[in-house]
């Protein structure tokens, strides 16, 4: 295939009503190639979920893509008609959320929900679909899949629900899976299971994954590339190893210092003082200025330049003469 599977260029997303629209996502570029796992990290409110939802055509009421392009497999998704979007969403792009309960129907056994999806999107017979459900539940690591298929969502633990939702999301054999903070509500052992499962799905099914998280260690452990967002913009992106080994953007560096380590010693934890800007009150220059430990006079007034070195991108004034 030529070109990336997902290509987002200059995406702006605005909230508002009739006359007043405020951009909360302010020019995001993002690429995901077939079979690749790309991480999207940043503090809460930085625009990760909205970016993901815009790909799914599922922006909340009051939000719209105000400019930019979203190409999926070469097809423009911005402005696509609902019917076509629905089809694509069910078949080629799957999504899992932080809260699996919101995506699962409480009144229908989980297996039946996957059967329904298979029959709609893969036009399978009931028999074939039922057999496939057992395979899928097994793939996501559910023991006794045939029995579990008959359970209702509320009868499963958080980790199991996350597995079921993943089985549902990959049932149509999508090319892309968007996982928005899939483990944020889970404890570390269950989190490790879900991450292991995602890794396996990617290897076994070759599905590309857009992995959204504010957990930097998770991103480092399963992603190939990563984009760091701050206040609606990508401030740094690149291959995982160079980016985590030698982060170039001050925000990324400060964020990495905050990650608690088992061997991190005692005393106060490192923090980033202050809060991310509330949207609508963003500076003309770099939005990170008030919290940046290496900010310069020009930072708040002038938008920082975008610099790329062997695929590693950083948007910052630091080191610019």
């Amino acid at each position: 295939m030529s070109g990336p599977l997902l290509q987002i260029d200059g995406l702006h997303i605005a909230f508002g009503s009739r006359s007043v629209w405020r951009d909360v996502v302010r020019g995001v570029d993002l690429r995901v190639s077939a079979g690749e796992v790309v991480g999207l990290v940043g503090e809460s409110g930085s625009g990760k979920s909205l970016t993901a939802l815009s790909v799914m055509g599922l922006l909340p009421l009051g939000a719209k893509v105000s400019s930019g392009r979203i190409l999926f497999d070469g097809t423009e998704l911005v402005g696509m008609r609902d019917g076509a979007m629905n089809k694509l969403r069910g078949r080629d792009i799957g999504m899992i959320f932080q809260d699996p309960l919101s995506a699962l129907n409480p009144a229908i056994p989980v297996g039946k929900q996957i059967v329904d999806s298979l029959r709609t999107h893969a036009s399978m017979t009931r028999r074939a679909a039922e057999a496939r459900v057992v395979e899928l539940l097994d793939l996501v690591g559910i023991n006794q899949p045939a029995e579990r298929a008959r359970a209702y969502a509320h009868e499963l633990s958080g980790g199991m629900r996350q597995r079921v939702m993943t089985a549902l999301a990959v049932s149509s054999n999508p090319k892309l899976l968007i996982a928005d903070e899939p483990t944020t509500a889970l404890d570390v052992t269950v989190q490790a299971q879900v991450i292991g499962m995602l890794d396996r799905i990617r290897r076994d099914l070759g599905i590309a994954v857009l992995f959204i998280s504010h957990n930097l260690d998770l991103v480092a452990s399963i992603c190939d590339r990563v984009s760091v967002m701050y206040a609606g913009r990508v401030v740094e992106s690149g291959a995982v190893e160079p980016l985590f080994d030698a982060p170039r953007h001050p925000y990324t560096r400060q964020l990495l210092r905050c990650v608690p380590r088992l061997d991190g010693g005692t005393g106060p934890m490192p923090t980033i003082p202050g809060l991310p800007p509330r949207f609508g009150s963003v500076l003309p220059g770099c939005a990170f200025t008030p919290r940046c430990v290496v900010s310069q006079a020009r930072c708040s007034a002038q938008a920082p330049p975008m610099r790329r070195e062997s695929g590693h991108l950083s948007v910052c004034w630091e080191g610019v003469p």
């Binding site: 570390v188 490790a192 991450i195 260690d217 480092a220 452990s221 995982v240 190893e241």
Partner: peptide, 13 residues
């Protein structure tokens, strides 16, 4: 087990 489940970032990778 609990310690092993802590994501270890690049080291784990």
């Amino acid at each position: 087990t609990l310690l092993a489940a802590v994501p270890s970032g690049l080291k784990g990778r």
